[in-house]
Design a protein around this nucleic acid. Structure first.
Lengths: 130, 130
DNA sequence: GCTGTAATACTATGGTATTAGTAGGTCGTG
DNA sequence: CACGACCTACTAATACCATAGTATTACAGC
């Protein structure tokens, strides 16, 4: 269970692969927000591949890169990390921060509550006694 | 609004300063989880000071370092960042992840709901119609 | 006043991140 | 076949991170 950690730039690129699926260098480059040289994108992709986070297959003369890491895994790692380091290990404190300091609209907050209600209601209707 | 970003090790040390208040090198060193040489801790503190994130004042022959950055600021930065990069910019998706994938107990979930209820109840009692 | 201890200041080293240039291959088209 | 467009491979430079050793200073106690 090796903590999946990405650098800033790596994360930019992983985000593209997760969002748009397997992509060539050129299409990754087109889709990231910041402007990088073609070779720079390629280098980061090669680094990611070296680390085992992504793979590729030939497509014509180009490569198409695909993620080997579930986005969910990266999410758990990242959330764990900031929970530990910034919220003293408390997910509740994190949520409290989300609802009070993160500048959300009432509608968003209501949808969040709906999510929680659904989760608590659906999952285990009877055993909320403990 | 300059994104407050810390490296891993810096964050370890900031966590101590936030948690325990102004601290000397020795007390920081005692409180961080990982084992680092005294001089290593000092070096990181000096780096943090150079970057303007902390300050110090003399206390006897030692220095007592204190944070100049609100933990809340760092929290916002960190949460923004992972929301953007890992949750496609959606705080709701982040919450959804928290409640479904982050392995929380029912009690925690219930306390979270209570938080949301309090927030929504307090803030705007009437408009929960939507 | 000397010596030990604890603190900071300075210096160093190996590693990773970030960015990108250049060289060389391949394929389509005139 | 030669040329250009596009692609990957190799190489590189700069900055920053992580860790810590050595030098030096300053006070406390004998």
């Amino acid at each position: 269970m090796g903590e999946v950690v990405f650098t800033d730039r790596e994360l930019d690129i992983m985000a593209v692969l997760w969002e748009h699926g397997p992509s060539t260098v050129a299409s990754v480059r087109d889709r990231i927000s910041i402007d990088l040289a073609y070779t720079t994108v390629l280098t980061i992709l090669r680094t990611l591949e070296e680390k085992g986070h992504i793979g590729h297959e030939a497509e014509g003369r180009a490569y198409r890169y695909h993620s080997l890491v579930e986005r969910g895994e990266a999410r758990v790692s990242a959330v764990d990390r900031i929970t530990r380091k910034l919220f003293a290990g408390s997910t509740e404190t994190l949520l409290s921060h989300l609802v009070s300091d993160q500048d959300l609209s009432d509608e968003e907050l209501q949808r969040m509550r709906a999510l929680l209600n659904a989760r608590l209601g659906d999952d285990d209707e009877g055993e909320e006694g403990a």
